[in-house]
Simulated assay, not measured.
Amino acid sequence: MDSVYRLTHDAFVGAGLTPATKSGQLIHFPELDNMPKTKVIVAEVNGRIVGTNSITFDGPAGLHTDKFFPEETQSIRDEGRNLASSWRVAVDPSFRNQLKVIRSIFKQTFAVADAYNLECCLFTFYEKHEKIYQKLINARSLCKKSYSNEFYTDKTQVLMRVDIEDFLGTAWQT
């Protein structure tokens, strides 16, 4: 996990999304990291982790979206669908322009989701990345909120949703 935390730090600092830390690590939701319902996905090139994403399946500990979008997450949860959230999407700055890395990460993420019979996945992305993920993974934007915490200062997050029936049959499945 140290490599994932360092990669996340470097990617987010490099994108201007968060200030650098002395530890050189960015640990978003440590309470979710060691849960059996969380799967950490990595993309490697020559044994080096160059991309990561995490997916947490809903359970007693909740989802990362409960922290920033609690009412919206609960409303979706009330639909009764098998729900998860995907978070900590990061790509090494030197690989940022290589679409194959992010595609590999999401292909792996949705393979894990399929293995767990996922029906709906929630994401939070920075507003500046909203259109990219609408195109890349057929994500639908639900709402936006700006907030500040120990990692971010006045960054607008977009709650996005991907329903498995909207994902199936896309180019991702090939």
Results as ranks from 00 to 15, higher is better:
G24M: 08
G59M: 00
N53M: 03
T52F: 01
I55E: 02
S85N: 08
A43M: 01
A61F: 13
V50L: 01
G59D: 09
S94C: 13
G80R: 07
H28A: 10
K39R: 10
S86D: 01
G62E: 04
E79D: 14
A90C: 13
L83R: 12
I55C: 00
V91T: 11
G62P: 08
N53A: 03
L32V: 10
D58E: 07
P19A: 07
N34I: 12
Q25F: 13
G59E: 03
I27N: 09
L83A: 07
T21G: 14
T56L: 04
A20R: 15
V40C: 11
E72K: 08
S85W: 03
E31V: 10
V42W: 00
E79V: 13
T65I: 08
G80Y: 10
V89D: 12
V45K: 09
V45M: 10
W87P: 03
K67F: 04
E31L: 07
S54N: 03
I49D: 08
G24N: 13
R77V: 04
E71T: 11
R88K: 14
L32P: 06
Q74H: 09
G62W: 06
Q25G: 11
L26P: 03
D92S: 11
K67S: 02
Q98P: 12
R81Q: 09
P36S: 15
G51S: 09
D66K: 08
L63G: 07
R77F: 00
Q25E: 15
R88H: 01
T56A: 03
N46D: 15
T65K: 00
F69H: 09
A43K: 03
N82R: 05
H28N: 11
T38H: 00
T65M: 06
T65C: 05
R81E: 13
Q98A: 12
F69D: 02
T38Q: 01
T21R: 14
F57D: 03
R81N: 06
T73F: 05
F95A: 12
L26S: 07
T73M: 05
E79H: 15
F68M: 05
A20F: 12
D33F: 03
G47E: 04
G24V: 07
P93A: 14
I76N: 14
F57M: 05
G24F: 11
K39W: 05
I55M: 00
P30E: 12
L63W: 04
S54V: 03
N82W: 01
H28T: 06
L63P: 01
R96A: 12
F95I: 07
V42P: 09
I41R: 02
D78S: 09
E71S: 12
V91P: 04
G59L: 01
L63T: 07
V91H: 05
R48N: 14
I76P: 09
N53W: 00
E31F: 10
